[in-house]
Amino acid sequence: MIHFSTPGDRLYLVTDSHISRQAGHSLAFVVEEACRAGVRWVQLREKALSTQAFVELGLAIQAITRPYGARLLINDRIDVALAIGADGVHIGQDDMPYALARKLLGPDKIIGLSVNNLSEAEAACHLDVDYLGIATIYPTGTKTDTSSLLGPAGLQTICGRTNLATFAIGGIGAGNIREVMQTGVSGAAVVSAICGQVSPYEATRELIQKLEAGL
């Protein structure tokens, strides 16, 4: 069972190296600033790296997250998560089946699962996943297959049908995070709203303040 003891527990950073570089930042800098500002969930998402490079980056990011008590999850790559001793993984509907992922990782690691609609969320209720990542809420440049945007109403429906912890993702930023939190979702996951900002620290602080106001 995931407990949310601080507002930072409800803000989830999904990394994007490309967006970070476009903003003039290294990924390590973004993660450090976000954690310093209060983020306590970091998902390392790297689609193009080799296994060796992913492991090296994972270890470097883990050296940042651990002193802050932030959870580090690896997107998709269970082998990388095992190699670095990450806190867990986040898997999608087309990734390794949950049961096999749990068998490989063991009972103590965190596993999050992406769901894109109500039927997927209801199916996940039969699994002992730790949280659901609910997508996609608003249009976003980081995900192109947004044929069925949920919007706040769709998000609220899903949140009302599950007892699992939930994080909304997709187009969430300072301008709409309060609206998102009013749906009953546990927290919000962001990419560009932190990685693509001039000051990741200030952006994170603003998000946490607005997130808290929306509860």
Results as ranks from 00 to 15, higher is better:
102 R>Q: 09
27 L>S: 10
77 R>Q: 06
71 R>E: 04
148 S>F: 12
2 I>V: 13
137 I>S: 01
77 R>D: 00
106 G>M: 11
151 G>L: 09
198 V>W: 02
130 D>K: 01
202 E>Y: 08
137 I>Q: 00
73 L>E: 04
173 G>K: 05
86 A>F: 03
193 A>E: 03
91 I>F: 06
91 I>Y: 06
42 V>C: 06
20 S>M: 04
66 R>G: 10
211 L>Q: 04
36 R>S: 10
172 I>E: 00
70 A>P: 02
213 A>F: 12
27 L>W: 01
89 V>T: 01
153 A>P: 00
87 D>H: 12
191 V>G: 03
18 H>M: 06
112 G>C: 01
63 A>R: 15
36 R>F: 05
88 G>F: 07
40 R>Q: 07
148 S>H: 15
74 I>C: 05
200 P>W: 04
140 T>I: 02
43 Q>L: 00
212 E>V: 06
128 D>S: 14
143 K>Q: 07
107 P>N: 04
146 T>V: 15
126 H>K: 09
200 P>R: 02
100 L>P: 00
95 D>Q: 12
85 G>I: 14
93 Q>V: 12
139 P>H: 09
98 Y>S: 03
40 R>H: 08
77 R>Y: 09
212 E>F: 12
100 L>M: 14
151 G>V: 12
31 V>N: 03
182 Q>W: 00
124 A>Q: 09
61 I>Y: 10
20 S>E: 04
116 N>M: 08
96 M>F: 05
101 A>V: 13
150 L>R: 02
101 A>C: 11
39 V>K: 00
182 Q>P: 00
60 A>T: 14
105 L>Q: 07
13 L>S: 08
100 L>R: 13
168 A>G: 07
172 I>V: 14
45 R>Q: 07
